[in-house]
Write a protein that binds this DNA or RNA. Structure first.
Lengths: 257, 257
DNA sequence: CGGGCTGTTGAATACATTCAAGCCCCGTGG
DNA sequence: CCACGGGGCTTGAATGTATTCAACAGCCCG
């Protein structure tokens, strides 16, 4: 515990390369560019504290965003993980996506000024918060900020291309393999271990997301394990033969090899 | 045929409310705001002609964008329709999305400066083209333009929320119903007839997109027809009981009722 | 120690795919 | 004008796969 050292998203000193389990450093955070614009070289010294919320703890199962609420801020995952979901007519939820450290949440609310989806923590987590109502404080640096925002949005558009590949896959085996690979890639993208990791979500959540039955997901994991492609112990996964998984998933072209 | 009247995306006179089959007027075009910034009140009179390509015809099966090419421009569908697809390792394609009049194509290429997906015309179509390399001509109006771009990107992020609902649906019936509803909604969004429309894509494309067999799509259409929910004649569809379709699809919360 | 939650495993059913055939629409060429 | 042929679409039975229902195992927490 440092005394008064800032724990904000951006000004973290680059030196401390020690990584605490699953916490992203600011350099690999989706808000990084925007934090820079907001904080570094800002006319007002502590401008960043006005706009970017410090690392806030979020308890497991706590909602960071509730669908239907007015849009006001976007969030970057600092540690932990989240799921977004829509609530269907019959009351149960359809999981739309998962979020991992470094990724941005709440972007979908911008255009209509209302959050269309809810966001809930899968485990004890923490986030940085970017308050849109205080953006006018940026003044002339707004243009820079907008550019960063455009970058973030287009990165996200690119990521979303994955989804149809995930879901459109013909059978459960391919879908499950693709799911694990996409997870691995997303971890790697933010410099987190990509071959040994903990699944933050329940089997139920995975099944919901993939449009499969819980039992099927279980069976697929067992099948992969019996093929020596991976090792599963509860929520802990180790990918042993990632190339074989790629072959099963049947994709290559997207996101390179 | 007007003599020299401009056929560009934006300055179309609002008066002509006559609609030619499936052509969107500029007011409901995704580029509208950006066109306004680029063209109206611009210091240089015909600045818009420099930046926004006039309505260009695209032949059926012609590629507007080829995956892997360097990013340079975004396109708005003026008339007709398109599909985006990724090419998989085994050579065949996975359809990622369809585009209809008023929607923007190529946004995914912005972040990496390379188009990740190909875009192909499903029928004889036309597009307006926005050239990013000439944006510097905008000068001080750049900020306004960026705001419009941010709006377009976040609208798209919001749209993409549909996809998991489409694909994540448990069975073929739900998926097909959701597909038709999303189609209907997208048409309505751009003031096109939303209950009677022509499917611009083949059954093969629909099946590929939904991750189903062609035959299954056929059977679902027949089933819906026998339930009096719709009427299908080849590629012509008329939705007769859209509420029942919504019940089958099982969604409500997203995109309102 | 017992209850609830999460995850796994097994057998029967329901479902989508596959393979195969036939239909329909439309354009081509006789 | 009609015959032919091809592509897109539909329809029918058999196979294979995922779901469902049910039971049980492991684990955390009281």
């Amino acid at each position: 515990m440092h005394t008064k050292e800032r724990d904000t998203c951006c000004p973290t000193p680059r030196g401390s390369s020690r990584r605490k389990s699953n916490v992203v450093e600011c350099e690999s955070c989706g808000l990084y560019g925007m934090c820079q614009v907001a904080g570094l070289d800002a006319p007002v010294p502590d401008l960043i504290d006005e706009i970017v919320g410090r690392r806030e703890p979020i308890a497991i199962n706590q909602n960071v965003i509730t669908a239907g609420m007015p849009f006001g801020e976007i969030y970057a995952v600092k540690s932990g993980s989240f799921k977004t979901y829509a609530t269907l007519a019959n009351g149960d939820q359809q999981i739309i996506d998962f979020y991992y450290p470094g990724e941005l949440m709440g972007l979908e609310g911008m255009s209509e000024r209302v959050y269309p989806l809810s966001v809930e923590a899968l485990e004890a987590s923490s986030v940085c918060r970017l308050d849109f109502s205080k953006l006018n404080l940026l003044g002339e640096r707004m243009g820079e900020f907008q550019q960063q925002l455009i970058l973030a949005l287009s990165r996200r558009a690119r990521q979303d291309q994955w989804v149809p590949l995930l879901m459109g896959a013909q059978n459960a085996e391919q879908r499950t393999a693709t799911f694990l690979l996409s997870l691995s890639d997303r971890f790697a993208e933010h410099d987190l271990p990509s071959l040994r990791f903990k699944l933050p979500m329940s089997r139920h959540d995975i099944a919901n997301y993939l449009g499969l039955a819980v039992e099927t997901v279980s069976r697929m994991f067992q099948r992969f394990q019996s093929m020596d492609l991976l090792e599963v112990h509860g929520r802990h996964v180790e990918l042993r033969d990632i190339d074989a998984l790629r072959v099963i998933a049947g994709l290559n072209s997207i996101n390179g090899s």
